[in-house]
Design a protein around this nucleic acid. Structure first.
Lengths: 248, 248
DNA sequence: ATTAAGACTGACCGACCGGTCAGCAGGGGA
DNA sequence: TCCCCTGCTGACCGGTCGGTCAGTCTTAAT
């Protein structure tokens, strides 16, 4: 009945140099790299340069700390994706821009991305709703809305579910991110280290498909998508030393 | 110097009802659902109906058990994906068939898929090579080969990297799988429980793009893709939610 | 100077971890 | 019959886990 647990879930004031912030940062790094269960409070305390007891001073339980990290990640992601909105220019160019930035963001924030993808593999329907509403929901819906508008203005085919369009585009990006290490192993693949090249081709595929486009319509109906780069991606000649040697 | 550790890594004889097999099955289930670190040997022993010491009788360490599970999963996956090849019919139809089967396989073997995806999030370049060669390598390369052949025969555009085509298709499927629970939360999405519907639209997107196709070429250049099947297995209504606790 | 309230710590707790070990049951060869 | 081998178990080990607690240090208002 002492009730001297002052902290529980303090509001996280800063992001870096208070103890609270350092704990959050350390926890994010470790959870992202190794997963929830594989990281001990001691690890986090050590990396944050505080005592283990201090971690429990700021966060009631390990789980609460994990949730705090997740929430911060969600907030960051949502905030950043907000800035991706761009309402000028033709829709294909906007899609290309969005997709490119989305992939870049995934790669820049490896930790965060991995954290969320890990979470995706473990959640049940209950937490799915929270994630859906707090992180992806708004952006996904916004994306779908843009696509739907494009359908009504005639810029996009209206016989396709826009949500599938969105899933395809985002899914390809996410997969590129999580399989990047793996893609590097294939000699067929020379874009593993060049997200720009991947994005360019991906957008071209999603916009116009992989089936041949007859000559007479080719130019009329294929809006350029920025990237005045004259060289087509083509079947890329083997890039400079990509040769990965087998150890034996 | 007693050397009485008889088992170490016994060859796994069967898949189901010997102790060895039951341990492997239990381990696969638990590792898939919760990850390596979150599962204790005791959990596995309990689920397999054997003593904890018996687990160590068959597998030298927890890590060895995990590797055995992974190896079995890889073997299964590789074996099954072999059966996806289908060399008759026009290329678009074959792609549709392949993609559909691939997605179905992902969903049927949730455990396996999750296990491998989890692994994908944690590996360094060293283990990436193993995964790449044992599980995905052959199939991915084969897939790319088919696409490249399609390019040379004129069935596919030759100005696009076939590896990106493959990545796009497979990536969309994988993302559909891992985000399924999340997709169910969006009202925009009505295909979350109907992989067939998703596959159909996905293939249409990848083949012909999301940009409008002018009338005069619409029929001439858009090969049908079979799948006159109109009945989907239906949206199985809301699943009875099984309460799963956060890891602790 | 006194007080009160965080921020913070070292020592500690019971539970459980991965892993070991001596030994039991039983079946087949001699 | 004896013996040995294999599959298997309960008891146990040192260590680490998440979490608690009594108490110190710092700061600022009284």
């Amino acid at each position: 009945m002492t009730m001297h647990k002052p902290a529980a879930t303090r509001n996280p004031p800063d992001g870096g140099h208070s103890s609270n912030g350092r704990i959050l940062v350390a926890a994010e790094e470790l959870f992202s790299a190794h997963g929830f269960a594989a990281v001990s409070i001691n690890d986090i305390a050590l990396r944050a340069g505080v005592s283990k007891a201090n971690v429990f001073h700021h966060f009631a339980t390990k789980n609460a700390l994990y949730l705090a990290v997740l929430r911060r990640a969600q907030r960051d992601a949502a905030a950043h994706l907000h800035s991706l909105e761009q309402d000028t220019g033709p829709l294909p160019a906007r899609l290309a821009s969005f997709s490119g930035k989305h992939l870049l963001r995934l790669l820049e924030q490896k930790q965060l991305s991995r954290l969320i993808l890990r979470e995706l593999l473990a959640i049940g329907p209950d937490r799915a709703r929270e994630l859906a509403e707090n992180v992806f929901g708004e952006n996904f819906r916004h994306f779908v809305l843009i696509l739907r508008a494009g359908q009504q203005s005639g810029e996009l085919r209206s016989d396709l579910d826009p949500a599938v369009m969105a899933t395809t585009l985002l899914g390809a990006n996410v997969f590129f991110f999580e399989a990047q290490t793996l893609l590097r192993q294939f000699w067929d693949v020379d874009f593993a280290d060049s997200p720009e090249r991947f994005t360019t081709t991906l957008i071209e595929i999603v916009l116009h498909g992989i089936c041949p486009i007859p000559r007479n319509v080719q130019e009329k109906f294929r809006p350029a998508v920025g990237s005045t780069d004259s060289s087509t991606p083509g079947v890329p000649a083997r890039r400079g030393q990509k040769r990965r040697q087998r150890p034996h």
